[in-house]
């Protein structure tokens, strides 16, 4: 898998944890304080190319989920069917692809 894509996925998963932190703590799971989670976030961000990070932040503000899976050729962010030229490519997770409709970063679960 493309390393930049992997970092983007990790960043989004950490962002979700930050959002769900309070709920998890209510269930009895201790999580490090917000400052430490933010430090972990900064460490991932350092590894992401600046132009990808700018796009991630823009998409995050607009949609909340900047990286989405593709299932049966459909972007799971905007539910548009992706073009055949994109779907038919091999080793799709080896490159950064974005949805031509909503612009979200795409990840193929079955690739």
């Amino acid at each position: 898998m493309n390393k930049q894509l992997l970092f983007l996925i990790s960043l989004q998963e950490l962002d979700i944890l930050i959002k769900e932190k309070e709920k998890e703590e209510e269930m009895g799971f201790p999580i490090k304080p917000c400052e430490e989670l933010k430090k972990a976030r900064e460490k991932i961000i350092e590894k992401i190319d600046a132009h990808l990070m700018r796009r991630y932040e823009r998409l995050s503000e607009r949609y909340g989920n900047p990286v989405v899976p593709v299932v049966d050729g459909i972007c799971q962010g905007c539910y548009m069917l992706l073009p055949t030229s994109l779907i038919s490519q091999k080793a799709k997770n080896e490159r950064i692809h974005t949805c031509p409709n909503c612009g979200r970063f795409l990840y193929w679960v079955d690739d």
């Binding site: 996925i9 989004q12 998963e13 979700i16 944890l17 009895g28 799971f29 201790p30 999580i31 490090k32 430490e36 989670l37 972990a40 990286v67 899976p69 990840y107 679960v109």
Partner: peptide, 20 residues
């Protein structure tokens, strides 16, 4: 980021992941 070993012999490791 925080253990999921809640004590008394039980742990609940968990996470969301794009892989599923």
């Amino acid at each position: 980021l925080g253990t999921t070993g809640i004590g008394k012999g039980i742990a609940i490791p968990h996470s969301r992941t794009l892989a599923l």
